[in-house]
Design a protein around this nucleic acid. Structure first.
Lengths: 177, 177
DNA sequence: TATTGTTATACTCTATAACTATA
DNA sequence: TATAGTTATAGAGTATAACAATA
């Protein structure tokens, strides 16, 4: 935790401060030019900063635990959407996960090459293709999903399950626009 | 919000599901191969997914509103640390913001070239250099900080200020390890 | 021997333009 | 005329190795 003496003046809920001179003075009052503990109190008031740091923390654990399945977060997300929405098209995945079409092509190709997904002709639109998990794909994804659920519990061991649910709900309210 | 009939079975707080067949059946029961609304209920239970989506949402607004200052999120973070910790060293910034030293060099160089920061000889360590905001740097950062505070309020208009504070506190508990 | 700042470089991620086949 | 999928490619972001100067 950062120094509370300066944090209190920065974390107040009122209007934005006009200057930052108070906290500058507080941070450099003791020595001339050297800094001990770094004051990040202001950045810690920013949702963008906190959300990004938290996401990177979770993702680093994700990368480690998903190594056995050779799945990056985006691969897992794609598999998850296909698993829960058999017959989904590439374009639908792009819209759902905010992936640009050219960047999805390689992922789909790779997952298909690994035998995890299959592309079937779309029943009504000959331009599109319906994506489905293969049997090995379903087996791998099922294990990966259990791993994902487990690592979430591990990485959130500093908050209660109720707090985690609150956290997820609040985050969804921010990005669901 | 996603379909609650399937979401309820996926969002429960018990142990991980062994299979995903129930939600697959639910998603594809009506038509053979086509998908209407995409079910992302499972992904929405993952903090990693929600935090990343929320961060990207905030960042996209950040990029737009910070255009007048020509500051990316990382530039703003660096300026913020320097502003609140005059005399801080590059290495300290790297440790604080999780930036690798080689990737900070160019940013510092650029901010210095723009006349926003100055590198002064470190008082006790001749290898290091203390970073400080210039007067124009302080002026620009002060405006940018007010803009950042303002855009946070705009992007979190779906939750209350109290909820935002809860959200930020919970996120910090996740990444402060 | 370890650390600060740096260069060079490779790798990954993200974004844009343009094409084809079909709607 | 618009959309689904694709190719090629550019740009931004992130990573490792290795070096000189100093601790």
């Amino acid at each position: 935790m950062a120094d509370n003496s300066t944090a209190n003046t920065l974390r107040r809920t009122g209007p934005p401060r006009k200057t930052i001179s108070a906290s500058r003075a507080a941070a450099s009052a003791d020595t001339a030019g050297t800094v001990g503990t770094i004051d990040t109190a202001y950045l810690q008031t920013l949702l963008g900063y906190n959300a990004r740091r938290a996401a990177l923390t979770v993702i680093s654990v994700f990368l480690r635990r998903m190594e056995p399945y050779d799945l990056r977060p985006v691969d897992f997300s794609v598999l998850s959407v296909v698993a829960h929405n058999p017959g989904v098209t590439s374009r639908q995945i792009c819209n759902t996960l905010d992936i640009l079409p050219p960047n999805l092509v390689g992922m789909i190709k790779s997952l298909q090459k690994r035998g995890l997904i299959a592309r079937l002709p779309h029943p009504t639109d000959r331009r599109a293709q319906g994506l489905h998990l293969t049997e090995p794909g379903l087996q791998l994804y099922t294990e990966a999903q259990a791993t994902a659920t487990g690592l979430e519990q591990a990485v959130t061991d500093r908050i209660t399950p109720a707090e985690l649910q609150t956290l997820n709900e609040l985050l969804r309210k921010v990005y669901a626009r």
